[in-house]
C-alpha cells in the first residue's frame, strides 16, 4: 500500500460517493490545469515530491478531483480513491489483464498506468458499461448467457478486453478472438466460454 497523503478508507456507498464527488468537483479549483501549464526548462522549480498531486480523473463520464501520491496507479486510484472496485488487482505487474480499463477508448492495464498521467483522458471501467436504467452491455449479457466465468475475478478485465477486441476489428474468427484475448488470463480456464461470449456479443452488435 502506498503511503497516501489522504488515506481515508472508502466507506461511502458508490451512489453516495459519486454524488459527493461531483459536488466537490464544482467547488474545487480545476487542479489539473496546474499540471499541464507549460514549463520551460530551467526556470521551473520542482514541486515538493512529498506533496500529493491534485488531479481530476474523468471516469465513466464523471469528474473525480483527487489528491494522490504521484506513485498511485490508475488501478489503485480507481479502487481506493474513487471507490470503483470492479477493476481487479490480480498480479499488479502487467501479466494477468484483470485490471484492464479503457483510456481514450483503448484498452490498457490500469496497474501499469500512473493516475497522474491520464488526468485529462476519459477512463471507462466495467462500472461504466451498463445503461443508467441497469440494462447490461451486450458483452456483459453475453458473459452471463455463455457462462463465461467461474470465480469471476478476471471477468471485468476480460469484458473490457473483449469490447476492445471487437472495436479493433479482431473478433472475426475463432483464432482471432483467442489471439486478441490473449492479454487476459483466466485461472479457471473458462476460455471456451469466453470465446463463445465474444462471438455472441459480436453478432448482437452486427445484427
Amino acid at each position: 500500500m502506498l503511503d497516501d497523503a489522504d488515506d481515508k478508507p472508502c466507506a461511502l456507498s458508490r451512489r453516495g460517493f459519486l454524488g459527493g464527488a461531483s459536488a466537490a468537483g464544482a467547488a474545487l479549483p480545476l487542479v489539473a490545469e496546474a499540471a499541464t501549464k507549460p514549463r520551460t526548462g530551467r526556470s521551473v522549480a520542482a514541486p515538493d515530491a512529498r506533496a500529493p498531486a491534485q488531479v481530476t480523473l474523468r471516469v465513466n463520464g464523471t469528474d473525480h478531483p483527487l489528491s494522490l501520491d504521484t506513485r498511485t496507479t490508475l488501478l489503485d486510484a480507481l479502487r481506493e480513491k474513487v471507490g470503483l472496485t470492479g477493476s481487479k488487482k490480480g498480479c499488479d505487474h502487467g501479466q494477468c489483464g484483470a485490471c484492464t480499463v479503457h483510456v481514450d477508448g483503448k484498452r490498457v492495464l490500469s496497474c501499469l498506468t500512473l493516475a497522474v498521467m491520464v488526468a485529462d483522458k476519459p477512463v471507462t471501467t466495467i462500472e461504466g458499461l451498463a445503461r443508467p436504467d441497469g440494462r447490461l452491455h451486450p458483452m456483459q449479457q453475453a458473459f452471463i448467457d455463455r457462462d463465461a466465468f467461474q470465480c469471476g475475478y478476471c471477468t471485468p478485465g476480460q469484458i473490457m478486453s473483449a469490447i476492445a477486441c471487437i472495436n479493433e476489428g479482431h473478433a472475426k474468427t475463432h483464432s482471432d478472438i483467442r489471439e486478441y484475448m490473449s492479454g487476459n488470463l483466466c485461472r479457471c480456464a473458462a476460455y471456451p466460454n469466453i470465446v463463445a461470449a465474444v462471438k455472441q456479443a459480436r453478432d448482437v452488435k452486427e445484427g
Partner: peptide, 22 residues
C-alpha cells in the same frame, strides 16, 4: 515518498529538466 512529475512539452525542455534535476 512520491516523486514530482514534470510534463515536458518539448525535447529541449525535457533534456534541460533532466540536466537540472540530476
Amino acid at each position: 515518498m512520491g516523486f514530482a512529475l514534470h510534463e515536458a512539452k518539448t525535447l529541449a525542455e525535457a533534456t534541460m529538466l533532466a540536466r537540472d534535476l540530476g
